[in-house]
Design a protein around this nucleic acid. Structure first.
Lengths: 142, 142
DNA sequence: TTAGTAATTTATAATAGTTCTAAACTAAAT
DNA sequence: ATTTAGTTTAGAACTATTATAAATTACTAA
């Protein structure tokens, strides 16, 4: 749980003015015990349901992208029409529950280190991401 | 290299009529030695450049999705705005070159088996996909 | 304080990618 | 041949995201 003043300095330190819209978004995203996985739509809905003052959709998009660019959020793409943001910015992998459309963070207890034996010549690895899709037994698999 | 008659039976066997549009698309996609990674846009461009008769964009979308549903293509999503289809439908992983926007198939020589130690209770794993993003040393990483 | 400025927010327009629609056409069955 | 159901097509519709430009706000420096 972070205080408002911590968000103010977090924003200032990354060259973003601590506007009331950004602080509100910080509160929704980062004032949590657990990792938060959300779509832009989820976030917009959450804000409009929980606060009286509305934040323009354009601002929500701008802010989420700014936070992503500053490294406060990670983007996890599931399919061409499902993209989530993740407040957990450490290196980690995901389960994706196809029944509930929920993302679940993995730690090293669930997925072992990926062994990359040979990289492309002359290139540097910028990220390694594993996505494990799961579904209940009775459903058809893809 | 497959013959036209093989595509005809392939389509018939999966309940799709072998229309000339579908056969043309089969030719472009499957009449190759190597795996083909493409976007809908790549495919549409390829067809319009290499054939005189045009195929409607709607048909290209329909056909690619039908082929995906029938298991002849796999979809690989890189980011919310970049989605590729892959003619290699075996279980495999990918490198994604951020400099060239090219996907590269991996085999077991490059990426070892992913060790999933604990799955979500009551769920079955439908797929495991690793995406390794690479870029040249001089570029900034994400 | 108070101007001045630059950044930010906002509603709306524009754009892009994809899906929908319904009429025309085609493959296959009778 | 005729019929039927599946397919293709152009263009409309839709959806998610980005751009625009005016109004507002945060900050700076006098």
């Amino acid at each position: 749980m972070l205080k408002n003043s911590e968000f103010v300095s977090k924003l200032r330190n990354s060259g973003l003015r601590p506007t009331k819209q950004r602080l509100k978004i910080c509160e929704v995203l980062f004032n949590r015990d657990k990792t938060f996985h959300f779509t832009i739509n989820d976030l917009a809905k959450n804000i409009s349901e929980n606060f009286n003052e509305k934040i323009s959709l354009a601002t929500i998009y701008n802010t989420v992208h700014a936070f992503k660019d500053k490294g406060y959020l990670k983007e996890i793409t599931i399919s061409s029409d499902k993209s989530y943001f993740d407040t957990n910015i450490t290196k980690h992998h995901h389960f994706y529950d196809e029944d509930t459309n929920l993302l679940i963070d993995c730690n090293d207890n669930e997925i072992g280190k990926v062994n990359i034996k040979n990289n492309i010549t002359g290139k540097k690895i910028s990220s390694v991401e594993v996505l494990v899709r799961v579904a209940s037994d009775t459903q058809n698999q893809s």
